[in-house]
Each structure stands twice: as C-alpha cells, then as structure tokens.
C-alpha cells in the first residue's frame, strides 16, 4: 500500500514535469494556428462566409469546365512554353539545364498541374503570382501587427523580429516588391486563362498515377533538395539566394524537425508560421499535399513499420520477464517474511 503511494507520487511529479517541459512548452513555442485551408478562401476577399467562398469557387471551376482546350493549347504554347516544359504534350523548347541557367531555378513542368494544384488557386496565380503565393494583403496585415507590437513592447517585438531576421530579409527582397519570377497574365482575361486551364485538364494524369516523389519534385525541387532520396536541387543555389534572400533548407529531415502537423499547415500557407517568409504558397490541393507530406515522412522516418512490428516483441518479452521476476521475488521473500 505504502509502495503504491510512493509510486503515485513519483508518477505525479514525472507527469507534471513532462507536461511542463514538453506539452506546455511546445504550446508556447508554437502557438496553434488555424487548420490548413484548401479552399484558399483569402483569394475571395469579397466572400464573407464559407458558402459564399464555395459559390465563387464553383463559378471559377464552371468557367474552366466551359473553356476551349484547343484555344488553350495555343495560348499556352505562345505564353508559357518559353519557360516551362510540358512533357506530356511534347512541348520542350529548352533543356532543364538551359531553363535553370535562364531563370535561376527550374520553372515546373506543367503537364500535371491541374491534378496537383487547386485550379481556383491556379487561376489567381496566373493573374498575379506574387499576390496568390504570398497573400500579400494578409502578410501586410501581419507586418502591421508586428509594428504595433513594437510600439507597445519594444523588447518583445525585438525578439519577434530577431526570430524572423532571415525571413524579413527575404520579405524585403521579394514580397515587399510583390516580386515573383513568374510573370502575371491578368491581361489575357479570364476567358483565355480558363481555356488554358481547360487544356491542362486534358493532358494531366489522375493524381493516383503520379508518385509522391514526382509531386514533390514538381512543387518543391526548384527550391529544395531532398538529399536522403537523391533528389537534387533544380536551381542554382546562388541565384536562388539572390532571388529569395535565403538559402532554402534541404527537406530530408523536415518530418522529424517540424512534424506532419506543422508541414500540413505550413505548406498550405507558410505565412501562418513564418511571418514574411520568402517560401511561397504553392497551392497544392489537399490530395497532392498529403502525398508530399507522406513522401517526406517516408524519406525522413523510414522505420515506422519496423518500429511498430518489433516493439511489441520487446515490450512483450520484458512484460513476461516482469511477471516471472515478480513470482521469484514472492517466493524468495516468503521465506524471510517480507
């Protein structure tokens, strides 16, 4: 009885310590953010409610539905092929090396974009790439909040800003200038853009036929390498640094350092976690983004299955030993009346 009481006290102290040092500290370090939003609601500033966003989204999708793929193909060939390869349709004006030399980084192959990226996002992206990928209004708003915090408590905001020095540099280089190497095509008009997206629909493979590695290559490899899977950076690192203000990290161990939950909200909207970061919102749809996260998990933490399988045996073995040891102890102690 007394021993149980001692055990309870030990357990209670250990639990409080664990809660404080892990659970609570984690909450303070990484305050929870709103869940990932795959409707990209902020692209519809007029819409007040989720159903209004939904209605606007359906309008855009209906436009693409009615688009003319043949006209779209011509528009794409004229406007996009100088920088992007479309291997599914045999459109390749330059090699990857030449494209990297010309752009500093490899503009992604456009073959499968309508399966990988949210089409409503793509529409907004083609009109104004910087606005769509940085949600500048939203970022600006956070910057204002930061300035306000600075006025209130210089000490705290000093830390906030220090935390983001690198990203603020990136911000100045890129976001503040509303700058994206990808030109905007608002001037083509909605109808022509819808034609293009209708065309992309006709050439895209369904998502199930695209490997998670290919998705990651398409969406991330122009800025990030994945060393542990021999995925090379599809860019010139120095040019990338000039462009982004930072050298983007390798993604091999991101699943361990940031965790799947963080990656899910971060990739969906990087500004939520790193205010003013130069990492763009790439606009992957939910299915594609889940596959990217799963891929990063497979690369960064490949032993999950083996762990779960072996663990039961180890724990079971020692559980059995515990029972045997208990019986032996009982029999030894009986003789001495303890």
């Amino acid at each position: 009885m007394k021993e149980l009481k001692i055990l309870a006290i030990l357990a209670a102290f250990t639990a409080v310590l664990y809660w404080g040092v892990e659970t609570y500290a984690h909450k303070v370090f990484y305050p929870p953010v709103a869940p990932a939003d795959f409707t990209f609601a902020d692209l519809h500033p007029e819409a007040q409610t989720a159903s209004e966003v939904d209605r606007e989204r359906r309008e855009v999708l209906a436009m693409i539905e009615q688009g003319d793929p043949a006209a779209g193909r011509i528009a794409v060939e004229t406007n996009c092929a100088a920088c992007h390869t479309i291997s599914a349709d045999g459109i390749e004006m330059m090699s990857d090396e030449q494209l990297i030399a010309a752009n500093g980084l490899l503009p992604p192959d456009l073959s499968n974009i309508s399966s990988l990226y949210d089409e409503v996002f793509l529409m907004a992206f083609l009109k104004d790439p910087a606005e769509a990928s940085f949600i500048t209004s939203h970022t600006m708003h956070q910057r204002e909040a930061l300035a306000e915090a600075k006025a209130k408590s210089p000490e705290d905001s000093e830390r906030l800003i220090n935390d983001h020095v690198r990203t603020v540099d990136g911000f100045n280089n890129r976001v503040a200038g509303f700058f994206n190497k990808m030109p905007g095509y608002a001037w083509l008009g909605d109808e022509e853009l819808a034609n293009m997206l209708a065309y992309f629909r006709t050439i895209a493979k369904p998502i199930n036929e695209i490997t998670p590695r290919e998705i990651t290559m398409n969406a991330c490899a122009r800025c990030h390498s994945v060393d542990y899977d021999n995925m090379a950076l599809k860019a010139d690192m120095d040019a990338l640094e000039d462009y982004l203000g930072v050298r983007p990290p390798d993604l091999s161990t991101m699943i361990l350092s940031h965790g799947g939950g963080y990656l899910t909200t971060f990739i969906n909207d990087p500004q939520k976690h790193l205010l003013g970061t130069a990492m763009p919102r790439v606009g992957l749809n939910e299915a594609a983004q889940d596959r990217v996260v799963a891929y990063l998990e497979e690369v960064g933490d490949p032993n999950i299955e083996e762990r779960n399988r072996l663990g039961i045996w180890f724990v079971g073995y020692f559980l059995l030993l515990t029972v045997l040891a208990y019986l032996w102890k009982k029999s030894e102690f009986k003789e001495i009346g303890k």
Binding site: R307, N308, L310, G311, F314, V315, F318, L319, L321, T322, A325, Y326, W328, K329, E332, F333, I336, K338
Partner: peptide, 24 residues
C-alpha cells in the same frame, strides 16, 4: 538472492517501460 530478487523485479518493470518508450 533476497535483495536482488526485488531489484530484478523493479529492473524488469523499468525495462518494460524503457522499451515501450524506445519504440513508441
């Protein structure tokens, strides 16, 4: 063997916990 009988029991409990943590 008396004192160690208790120790080995406690060691086994700790090792069970230990391997649980190692894996999960």
């Amino acid at each position: 063997p008396k004192f160690m009988a208790e120790d080995i029991f406690v060691m086994c409990v700790v090792m069970t916990l230990f391997f649980f943590l190692v894996f999960y």
